[in-house]
Design a binder for these strands. Structure first.
Lengths: 247, 247
DNA sequence: CGCGATTTGTGCACGCCTTCACAAGCGCCT
DNA sequence: AGGCGCTTGTGAAGGCGTGCACAAATCGCG
């Protein structure tokens, strides 16, 4: 992915700090650092070393330092990073200083769970609208929100200023829903349906497929089994892998 | 190039399918190819070109060919790939020829949804046991399974031959659950709790954090906004990204 | 039977990401 | 005040993954 960079840095702090094009890999890890930092903060820590934060986030300390260096230097040599300051910085970079409105489409098994998931609220998001195509589901109240018919998506998305759309419909309906979200001006989509979405340039799609995760684990299970069974008896060697999802 | 036989023949000496260490990136894409192949098969296709399959899976055709070449050549030049054969091959490589037993821990909002998620069953997995620590939940029946107390995890996991553990508990309980899963002999874990798990070598962990996905989208949203707002008025340029989750 | 159209398989170059190793900077203790 | 230990920030090297471009292989048709 290539991106144009955003030119100059106006000297003023707090003013829009020109956006470094952060490497995608770094962006994917920032949320993890943020979570670790919140934990550390609640535990009473004022500062953390890269080593300590790296351990809490499950990464290599050199990687962590390089990641943080990309967004400017907020550490103090010999001391570490100021927890509160770093939290503020990362939240700013991720755009979490403004609570983003999320619209959720597809109130089935999964959608129901997502609608009530605490993690969204506690980490900078707010679900503002629920949609489904099934008339039986329309009108149902879930966690303080009323399910609306999908036909209202365009209108409601504008009214509520929905920034991110979450698709939790069956695969067959996903593309149509994506089209409607795009038409409603949504430029970020999180897709739980097992299918590829086609969207215009400028729209970001992230896909989460629960079955795929299991299948990847299955592969490693399979490999481990054939390793321990056959060759000169390697014990459970291999390498314990802690892969985190993220592109 | 590489060997490969499959079907029966329980390994003998060197004749084993010894697993080509597939690049992780390739492994992560195989399930997507598999899904696309199933769709094509149901649509009545006998063969597919790399171009066609790549489009259905949302990837570059060169990448797809290279991925498939890693597991041996099952395509015919001038024609394409035999859909049925390729499905069989990929399922074998992923170890899906044997339906793996999944144990799910944490029957909250998310766990409930996962327990009833069709995608697992239809793609080679079977949830065989549900666990929770809350006595009120124990005994509850969900989709034909009875929720059992977490203390029974060790016993039941062995009896049911659980291969993969899914953790859908709050973050605070996740590490303890992981330890119990490992103690019960489970070597693959899918973690939905927002925390890093520490496991011994030989155990694979994959993490899915729904809030992190949203935060990554938020970053791009933020970037897009600052791009359109500031420089000489670029419209919604940037690059529409279709990132798929996977390590 | 041979030719051309088609599609796979892959060598190669490029770029991103990771990791190491170390100099520079900072605070604390004497 | 000065030195010492600790930690950050980063240059450089290596590995991995991607995508291009093309040779090899196969089929269909005249």
């Amino acid at each position: 992915m290539s991106q144009q960079r955003h030119g100059s840095t106006p000297g003023e702090p707090g003013a829009v700090p020109a956006f470094p094009d952060l490497p995608e890999a770094t962006v994917a890890r920032l949320p993890e650092y943020l979570r670790a930092l919140h934990n550390l903060g609640e535990a009473g820590a004022d500062t953390v070393s890269s080593e300590g934060l790296a351990a809490a986030a499950g990464v290599n300390s050199a990687k962590l330092r390089k990641d943080l260096s990309h967004l400017g230097s907020y550490g103090t040599r010999g001391v570490g990073y100021d927890v509160a300051l770093l939290i503020e910085q990362i939240e700013f970079v991720l755009g979490l200083d403004q609570r983003r409105a999320v619209g959720l489409v597809g109130i089935g098994n999964l959608g129901h769970a997502l609608a009530g998931y605490d993690g969204f609220v506690s980490r900078g998001f707010k679900i503002v609208a629920l949609f489904d195509a099934d008339p039986d589901k329309v009108g149902e109240r879930i966690h303080g929100l009323t399910v609306r018919h999908i036909d209202e998506l365009g209108k409601v998305a504008s009214e509520e200023n929905v920034a991110i759309g979450v698709i939790a419909t069956p695969a067959g309906a996903a593309q149509a829903v994506a089209d409607e979200l795009v038409a409603a001006g949504v430029t970020s989509i999180l897709n739980f349906a097992p299918c590829v979405l086609s969207v215009p340039p400028g729209v970001d799609v992230r896909k989460v497929d629960l079955a795929i995760e299991l299948q990847i684990l299955s592969f490693h299970e399979h490999r481990k089994a054939s390793l321990t069974a056959l060759p000169g008896g390697r014990s459970a060697t291999g390498a314990g892998n802690q892969e985190a999802v993220g592109s």
